[in-house]
């Protein structure tokens, strides 16, 4: 039932949020991976994992949610791998976007499309 057009309704909010994070800098690809299911039956709890070797922080966005921010992981000196896994809410079918800030100040970005059967925002 999730419509394709509906999914992009909040996408510009995500673009704005990413631009605010990177300061408008172009984000590269390849040094970050995001793992999410292709189809999530229940949008209330969708497992997502990110891995970006050499990252100091990774921020997750969901471009079809009413608010795009999901979480920011900052890695300290005792963090072994620059990776983490959590469970997130997705309101509808959409892209989950991970943006990593690398040690040299550059940014890396990866996207994963998740089809959601039942939305996760209680509405």
């Amino acid at each position: 039932i999730a419509s394709i057009t509906g999914a992009s309704a909040y996408a510009s909010l995500t673009d704005d949020a990413i631009a605010a994070l990177t300061g408008g800098a172009e984000a590269g690809e390849g040094a970050i991976t995001i793992t999410a299911p292709e189809i999530a039956e229940n949008g209330n709890t969708v497992p997502v994992a990110v891995d970006a070797p050499g990252a100091v922080a990774i921020t997750l966005f969901a471009d079809g949610n009413p608010t795009p921010g999901v979480a920011t992981f900052k890695f300290g000196p005792l963090s072994a791998s620059r990776s983490a896994a959590t469970r997130i809410r997705l309101a509808t079918t959409q892209n989950v976007v991970a943006v990593a800030k690398m040690e040299d100040g550059s940014f890396q970005m990866a996207k994963a499309n998740v089809k959601v059967t039942i939305g996760g925002c209680g509405g």
Partner: peptide, 12 residues
């Protein structure tokens, strides 16, 4: 520090 996570309402 190992990790420091900022959570938004989109966390389950």
């Amino acid at each position: 520090n190992v990790v420091d996570v900022a959570l938004e309402p989109a966390i389950s």
